[in-house]
Nucleic acid binder design. Structure first.
Lengths: 335, 335
DNA sequence: CCTCGATGTTGAAACGTTTTAACGACTGAG
DNA sequence: CTCAGTCGTTAAAACGTTTCAACATCGAGG
């Protein structure tokens, strides 16, 4: 471990004061070119690396924002993150990604750490409905892909109820009257909303509530989708739904996989609709019908709102985007 | 903006000294239960959040490590990250993810920032071959999925040459003698190594070097795979390769997509082998033959090596795992 | 009654920056 | 020759913690 060269070592080595070195680092224009050269040379020679902790402690501001993501393995979130990063970077900030992996405990730990780090702001797609966890602690927080219930934060969301409605309406129009909704746990708001939308579609079409069966999963990963598929296959074909609406594309892909594995045809034996329209949806075994969300915009907007929080007369805003149904082979009309 | 309550406010409010508050935070056992309660109450009441910058400045250590990833949208890397995070968390560290998005500039910026932040250590899957960028700057660095050329860092890698060899040998055994290698840019070492392995397979089989055509792409994303597919389709079928080895699964999925879109059959018109065996490979339009890497272990091992760097008598180590071919429908034997 | 060790608490000195007000040296105008 | 204004540089005071040696207090053992 090197004895850690500091700004004063550089100063001494270049024959100037600490203040001048600091100026070279932060306001290069204010220091005479000759001196600047000398200082830069010293920095280079000593291998000086500015200590961000000290800088931040004194200067009071940080140069990073963070995004606590629900599941880093879900391409939907990495796409959102990408949008957020682009916006952040344009404003001169770096973005750190944290993965809560749908675990409320982890989420809490990360949020706590980020608050302590005094990052400039935090984006978060929370695990559970209670945004109580996400209390105001001095650092601006923006909710992503989730509407702020109590108005204590800005939020950027997509109308998930509408999304669910679009999906199931589409299935109904294709002649399905026995439909499964695959998703869970219901503690995740996105799942609840999409379910609600699905029910609304039934009502609109004059179908009974029990036309839709909820097949609750423990998570939103591919493996859970496969599990749901096995449960579906286990049903006698007379009672088996003819269509499934999945709360996200990972579930849908898993479902698809177990169907083809068991020799059932999609969409003939089971029509499938996913959610998010991730890039892999189009490349799936059967190209997946899905509800598309404006991922990039979601991220960009979230970052913008976050960075606007420091403005003097800030009012919390709630932006809501509209989803869009993308029809592909997995939900072709019933014969 | 709250006037930011500090440790001394808490101390004053609880009628103790700063030192005691600090003790409550860091060595709860050393302070009398009654006092501890009083301090905790004060913390709660004032909404105190410890300032990590100050803590780190004084204490000299950080509680986070970071992973600078080549492409956060590639599930391969998020899986590696997951392994690294698990290992880190077991050792009491948090993991921050940074996305270089295959951009050397971004990578450099993130590394610089992380050095300045004095994180406990950095994992990185570097963009280009020159690990010169990743100079020693006082913070331990471990190379992930890339072998350290000059031995200045620990590294954890998978034998990519062998992987390429496995893939192409498999194709040759299935009767293919006109093979395309899809991948790029060649500045990425993984691509070069896999290419080298592919060539070696030719040699082993006694095939001429020109049995393998390199179809260089600008990146390793799905879209690039689609592009490569279009280029392949443009060839007269007499000269078109009968098999393609893709440098990763994203490319393979894109390739697959453009094939089916143009009505070409996989594997009949074109056999396809991918690399990484990401979860989506098995769920693809045609289940993808792929070279599997031990993603989770890669991450776990990398984190372990990183955390071991602080040991007094540390020697840089280079761990190399073996890849494994997973055969699926996309490369079924030639008729 | 004195001494000793154990137990809790504390004052003050760091940690490495940024920032502010002040300083001296010039320059050109009056 | 003075004065005002620039320009470049600097000393010193923060920023909010952790840590360390020192200090009370108290009960037990002699």
């Amino acid at each position: 471990m090197k004895p850690s060269v500091g700004i004063r070592d550089v100063a001494h080595h270049a024959g100037v004061s600490n203040a001048t070195v600091s100026n070279v680092l932060n306001r290069p224009d204010v220091v005479a070119p000759a001196t600047r050269q000398r200082v830069l040379a010293a920095i280079e020679e000593l291998g000086f690396v500015r200590n961000e902790s000290a800088r931040q402690l004194r200067a009071g501001r940080s140069r990073v924002i963070a995004y606590v993501v629900l599941d880093a393995a879900n391409p939907f979130f990495t796409d959102v993150a990408r949008g957020a990063e682009d916006a952040a970077r344009e404003a001169g900030f770096a973005l750190f990604l944290c993965n809560s992996a749908s675990d409320a405990g982890r989420e809490h730990e990360y949020l706590e750490l980020l608050h302590e780090q005094r990052v400039e702001g935090i984006l978060v797609t929370p695990v559970d409905g209670e945004s109580a966890q996400i209390a105001e602690r001095g650092t601006p927080v923006v909710l992503v892909d989730r509407e702020s219930t109590d108005g204590t934060h800005c939020s950027v969301a997509v109308d998930d109820v509408l999304g669910g409605e679009l999906a199931v309406t589409h299935l109904i129009e294709n002649g399905h009257t026995r439909i499964a909704m695959v998703g869970g746990p219901l503690s995740i708001q996105q799942v609840r909303d999409r379910y609600e939308g699905a029910m609304r579609a039934l009502t609109n079409a004059g179908l009974p509530q029990d036309a839709l069966t909820l097949l609750e999963t423990r998570g939103l990963q591919v493996a859970e989708g496969r599990g749901a598929g096995e449960r579906l296959i286990g049903l006698p074909s007379s009672r088996r739904p003819t269509a499934a609406f999945c709360a996200n594309d990972l579930l849908a892909l898993g479902l698809l996989q177990s169907m083809t594995q068991q020799g059932l045809k999609v969409p003939d034996d089971l029509a499938v609709v996913g959610y998010d329209d991730i890039e892999f949806a189009a490349a799936a075994a059967v190209p997946l019908t899905s509800v598309r969300q404006p991922r990039d915009q979601l991220g960009r907007t979230a970052a913008s709102l976050l960075l606007a929080e420091n403005e003097p007369d800030h009012e919390h805003r709630h932006v809501k985007f509209q989803p869009e149904l993308v029809v592909r082979a997995s939900s072709a009309a019933k014969r």
